[in-house]
Every structure is written in C-alpha cells, then in structure tokens.
Amino acid sequence: MDLAQILLAAQPHVPAHYRPGIGIIGSGGIVRGAHLPAYQKYGLNVIGIYDIQPAATQAAQAQWSTLRIFETLDELLDNPDIEVVDIATHPAQRVELIQRALAAGKHVLSQKPFAPDLSTARMLVTEAEQRGLLLAVNQNGRWSPAWRVATLLLQQQAIGSLLAVTHLFETSFAWRPGSPFDLIPHSTTYDYAIHWIDIIRCWLEDYQLSNVRAQEYRTPNQPLESKSDWGMSAEFSYQHGVRAFIHCIGGTETSRQGHPFWLHGTQGTIRGCALGNDFIELERDGVFSRFDLKGSWFPDGFAGAMGELLSAIAEQREPYNSARHNLLTLEMTLAACQSEDADGQPVAFEEVPA
C-alpha cells in the first residue's frame, strides 16, 4: 500500500446503502461538539435525541433543525425508526442505559468506558451476543487521522517489530474544576487517558502484556479546589522487553497543545502528534515519508466509530470497536487505576480484579 492508498484507507467509512435511524441519549458538550458534527458531515440518519435536561436537547436541535426531541427515554427506545442507539452520558448511567437499549432490540454505541468493572462489562457483552445485537464502544481515537495511519503502517510491518510506544500529553485540565469530570475517581486515567491506553492495546495487539504500573499526582499549578489529579504516568510492560509509556502533564501553559507520540521498531520509527498540531511521518532506512493528513480527531474520529458499527451491522460481522474487543482496554485501564491506588506498585496483569 503506497502513501495515497494508506491515506484513503485511513478515512472513516460508512456503508453506502445502509443508513439506519440513530437515536442519541445524552446531549452534553461532546454530543453537540463532536457527535452531531460528525454525523452531519458523513450524512448519517439521526432521528432524535433524549436528555434529562431540556435545555441541552434544545441546544442540539438548534444545530440540527430536523432533530426530534424525545420527551422520555422510553419514547426514544420505542421508536421503530431507530435501529442504533448512541449512548453519550456520564459513566454512572451507562450500564442501565445499555441494558435498556438492548432489551428494546437496538444496536448500541456506548461512550467509553462502557462499564465500571470487568464482570459488568463481560455481562453486557454476553447479553448483547445472546440477543443477536451489536454492542460497540466509542473509542473514536482509533480513527483520529494520525493514529489511524500509524495503525495501518504497523499492520504492514513498516517499522518491523515494535520495541516501544511512547505518548506525551501537552495539555491543560484547567477547564475541569467544577465540572462532573472533576468528580470521577482517577479521571485523568479512567476518562481521558483511556483513549491512549486503547490505542496501545490496538498497536500491541500481538504482544503479551505482563504488568502495569501507574501513578497520578497533583501538578504544582493545580488549584486547591480541583479534586482530580492533573498529572499521571503509566508503563505497560510486555514480554521480551517491549514497553509502552504514557506521560501526562495536565497543567501545561502553551498555545501549542498536542499529544505527540513515537513508535520505535526494529526497522524504523513512526512519529506524530494527535489532537493538536496533528502530523505523522515514517522514517525507514534514512528516508522520511510525511503524510498529508485529512480530517481531524474531532469530528472525524467520531464518524469512524459510528461508521464501523454501521458497517458491521450491514456486513453481519463483529465491529473492530466491539465491546468484546474493548474488554482488554478496560482491563488495562483498571490495572492502571489499581496501581495508582497502590502508589505505583506494579500490577501483574492476571491480578486485575474481574
């Protein structure tokens, strides 16, 4: 596959002749700022939306004039025109909403993480499979342009075998105090870094994870009223010395925020940046190939996640972002949180509570 073919393959895909009705549960900032723009851009069939706060749904309707506002959850779930439900609420409500949507016979795309623990996650996976329905997770970062190109390059062995994956966050969580995210335990890891944990899970799919160690900390410039730690670091150790690292500096003061990453292999290096100052380049045999990326994580990554679910429904297969595939991401995330609770002590992977 040449550079042009890789860029084409990296674009979000939606099935050409399948546009099922989509109902959205939740109408927060992420829905109005990413879900709806993505679905509009790619011509998806959004029927309507439900949220417990009427003002939120009215704001969504202002963006999408034909969007129907459902007065109750049952009204949305009972609508025969809706085949797929997009659950975009905070974590505490997701499990019940997934179960109700499945009971109503709907395929589901759930915001991440889709369950608070592994036993609940496995229960949801089993329930969906027994009902013959697809349950996918909105790990939209898998379709962020730079990460998607990196995934395709790895699949072609462009840099040989992986030696290490390294991620750095140059970002600020100054927006978090006073928001619901500030109240989520291990918010930086569990709600934010889970995207980076997930892409590590994808890139190191064929490697055996041995243990996880992680720490979280308050940055020196973090205000006293901020409850969740802004800084974190995590190391995922695989067999034969392969490592993956995440280092988050959550209090940066820079106008060039971004999330640079490096993939070092036995035959070359991939370096890039996602979610700010996006780029990606491949270095091999002293030759540098830089990709002219199309689109951005917000909103195109969100179209990628929903598009993959729709494609899987149309093709009667498991989606790449299925809840079953996402079990390992959740397990790795919970292991990191467990290590943080133990002040960075390594957690052997088989010891993660199920």
Rank of each mutant, 00 (worst) to 15 (best):
E127C: 12
M123A: 13
D117E: 10
L153A: 10
A136V: 01
S110P: 04
P185A: 04
E129M: 12
I159P: 09
T189D: 00
G160N: 06
Q99L: 07
Q215L: 15
Q156M: 13
E205A: 14
F236V: 03
Q130H: 12
L135K: 10
Q155Y: 10
Q99K: 13
Q99I: 04
H186T: 01
S226V: 02
F181D: 00
L109I: 02
R176T: 10
P220S: 00
L168H: 15
V212D: 03
A150S: 13
Y238R: 02
T219Y: 03
H167S: 10
T166G: 11
A214G: 13
V108I: 03
E127F: 12
T171R: 12
L109N: 04
D191W: 03
Q208I: 07
E225K: 15
I197W: 08
L204C: 13
A214E: 09
Q208E: 08
H186P: 01
A214H: 07
K106W: 04
F173T: 06
A146E: 04
L124Y: 01
Q215K: 15
P220C: 06
L135C: 11
A193C: 15
I184Q: 08
P177M: 08
Y238W: 01
G141D: 07
G231E: 02
S119P: 00
I197V: 14
V137P: 07
E225L: 15
H195V: 02
L134E: 10
